[in-house]
Design a binder for these strands. Structure first.
Length: 255
DNA sequence: ATGCCGTGGAAACCACGA
């Protein structure tokens, strides 16, 4: 079974690319972030025609997350992270698909740092970590995937020294990611490729993709029951080179 | 060193992204 995550940066503007990628790689389960579409503007029919049932939580202009599944309608568990009823951003959706609890997340960017946006990022990270502990304690097979907006280590940045003050790489967020993983999660890409330079994002500017000036910020965290089943993982980096591409590339795992 | 590009929404610019 193949599970993929893709920050599409606008699900409607990205629809041709998204459909082409779905057709070529045929993942069984897909997590999408940055829909940038209100609930009623999600391209449900086009996704259905491509062979996927969809669960989504839209928002006007920004954010927005979705879970797609070939096997049937994802069974919704929640469409927000617990812990802050005042938080109206559509950044988390969770459903059971094929016996796996799938959490699809879009962690806040946090720039500029320091500042209120960075504070929001750290608070969101704390809520995610608390919820992740609950998920682990359930003993169920869980996949927590999406755009974490964190480069966990120097290996995940093309030029680490340029990013030390950035909200995606400051010590606080690297520590937060490490704390989360230490609960007992497996970073799928790093389990299979502990020492390889692997990126999931390239800026639109400065020919970043051509120069391979990338970041690894889209991650798969697997609970022990899922980690045992992991057989392969990778990045569809060629998708980043397609016409009208997102600045992220899809990431996938094979169970 | 720098939102230099891209998206969406509102209004012919702005917010936001990483």
């Amino acid at each position: 079974m193949r599970i993929a995550t893709y920050n599409v940066n606008g699900v409607n503007g990205r629809l041709p690319v998204l459909l082409r990628w779905l057709g070529e790689t045929a993942p069984d389960i897909v997590c999408l972030q940055e829909l940038k579409a209100p609930q009623e503007k999600f391209p449900e029919q086009a996704i259905k025609d491509a062979g996927y049932h969809a669960l989504w939580h839209g928002q006007k202009s920004w954010n927005g997350v979705a879970i797609l599944a070939r096997s049937g309608q994802p069974a919704e568990i929640r469409r927000a992270l617990p812990g802050d009823p005042e938080d109206v951003h559509s950044r988390y959706i969770e459903a059971t698909v094929d016996g796996i609890v799938v959490g699809c997340l879009y962690l806040p960017n946090g720039n500029p740092a320091p500042g209120p946006k960075f504070d929001y990022k750290l608070r969101w990270f704390e809520r995610l970590t608390a919820h992740a502990a609950t998920l682990l304690a359930s003993g169920k097979p869980v996949v927590l995937t999406g755009d974490y907006n964190v480069m966990p280590t120097d290996l995940d940045v093309y030029k680490p020294e340029k990013w030390v003050e950035d909200a995606l790489f400051r010590p606080e967020v690297r520590t937060a990611f490490k704390t989360l993983v230490a609960q007992g999660w497996t970073d799928a890409i790093r389990k299979l490729y502990p020492d390889e330079k692997i990126y999931t994002f390239w800026d639109y500017f400065r020919n970043a993709y051509g120069r391979d000036a990338g970041l690894r910020i889209d991650h798969f965290l697997l609970s022990p029951a899922v980690s045992k089943r992991l057989v392969a993982a990778g990045v569809n980096r060629e998708v980043r080179g397609w016409e009208k591409s997102s600045d992220h590339a899809p990431v996938w795992i094979e169970l």
